[in-house]
Simulated assay, not measured.
Amino acid sequence: MKRLIITTLAATLLAGTALSGTAMAAGQRHDDHRYDSRYDQRDRRDYGHDRRDYSHDRRDARHEYRHWQRGQRLDARYRDNRYYVSDYRRHGLRAPPRGYRWQRVDDSYILAAVATGLIASVIIANN
């Protein structure tokens, strides 16, 4: 009778340890799951991350540090009329040859071909 009780008690303890070990492992996997959508939503909302903000920063940083040189091509976005310098004499620039025009990009005056954007001259502005 004692052997039966001891064997049953030992089997119960071993089975309980095995079950609790798997339950603990399953619990750990659930707790260590870091990519739960609930937490992602809260983090974005708390820190104010917005995809548009990042793209705006990259777009500004891309043209701020550009060093223009003769022989390069002026980007199409800078060949727009809002960068066009029509009163070149007032800025101390010579008349552009046929097919070229002056563009003001950041602190530089760039003489570029109208059709291709090929840069013929770059003058850094003093003002």
Rank of each mutant, 00 (worst) to 15 (best):
residue 1 M to G: 15
residue 10 A to L: 13
residue 108 S to R: 12
residue 18 A to D: 05
residue 122 V to N: 07
residue 66 R to D: 03
residue 10 A to S: 06
residue 98 R to C: 00
residue 94 R to V: 09
residue 118 L to S: 02
residue 66 R to N: 11
residue 94 R to C: 05
residue 24 M to Y: 12
residue 98 R to E: 12
residue 6 I to C: 06
residue 33 H to C: 03
residue 84 Y to V: 15
residue 61 A to G: 06
residue 3 R to A: 03
residue 86 S to N: 08
residue 82 R to E: 11
residue 110 I to R: 06
residue 72 Q to T: 00
residue 24 M to T: 13
residue 95 A to H: 07
residue 97 P to F: 11
residue 104 R to G: 13
residue 21 G to F: 06
residue 65 Y to C: 09
residue 5 I to C: 06
residue 64 E to R: 12
residue 16 G to E: 05
residue 2 K to R: 09
residue 68 W to G: 00
residue 87 D to S: 10
residue 120 A to S: 07
residue 38 R to A: 12
residue 41 Q to D: 11
residue 37 S to G: 08
residue 107 D to F: 10
residue 120 A to D: 09
residue 105 V to P: 05
residue 52 R to W: 00
residue 52 R to E: 11
residue 81 N to V: 11
residue 86 S to F: 00
residue 84 Y to A: 08
residue 12 T to A: 12
residue 45 R to A: 11
residue 113 A to T: 03
residue 12 T to N: 02
residue 73 R to L: 07
residue 115 A to S: 08
residue 30 H to D: 14
residue 8 T to A: 14
residue 102 W to F: 01
residue 94 R to W: 04
residue 123 I to C: 00
residue 40 D to L: 02
residue 58 R to K: 12
residue 47 Y to F: 10
residue 83 Y to V: 06
residue 30 H to K: 12
residue 88 Y to K: 03
residue 127 N to R: 13
residue 112 A to D: 04
residue 2 K to Q: 05
residue 64 E to A: 07
residue 67 H to R: 13
residue 115 A to H: 02
residue 31 D to E: 05
residue 90 R to K: 11
residue 114 V to G: 04
residue 58 R to T: 08
residue 47 Y to D: 02
residue 52 R to Y: 04
residue 120 A to P: 04
residue 47 Y to R: 06
residue 61 A to I: 03
residue 7 T to N: 04
residue 43 D to Y: 13
residue 64 E to P: 01
residue 53 D to E: 01
residue 36 D to Y: 01
residue 6 I to M: 09
residue 6 I to Y: 14
residue 21 G to E: 01
residue 41 Q to T: 11
residue 76 A to P: 08
residue 84 Y to D: 06
residue 44 R to V: 09
residue 89 R to T: 10
residue 70 R to L: 03
residue 53 D to I: 00
residue 91 H to M: 09
residue 93 L to V: 01
residue 121 S to E: 14
residue 63 H to T: 05
residue 71 G to A: 05
residue 103 Q to Y: 11
residue 86 S to A: 12
residue 120 A to H: 01
residue 80 D to R: 12
residue 89 R to F: 01
residue 120 A to G: 08
residue 73 R to I: 02
residue 112 A to I: 04
residue 99 G to I: 05
residue 49 H to V: 08
residue 121 S to T: 15
residue 57 D to P: 07
residue 92 G to P: 07
residue 69 Q to T: 10
residue 25 A to S: 13
residue 99 G to K: 00
residue 98 R to T: 07
residue 80 D to E: 08
residue 92 G to S: 04
residue 21 G to I: 04
residue 60 D to N: 15
residue 49 H to R: 15
residue 80 D to F: 06
residue 42 R to S: 07
residue 7 T to G: 05
residue 126 N to K: 15
residue 111 L to C: 06
residue 10 A to N: 01
residue 43 D to N: 13
residue 58 R to H: 14
residue 125 A to R: 14
residue 29 R to Y: 00
residue 118 L to G: 07
residue 125 A to P: 08
residue 54 Y to M: 10
residue 20 S to W: 10
residue 78 Y to K: 07
residue 28 Q to A: 14
residue 114 V to E: 09
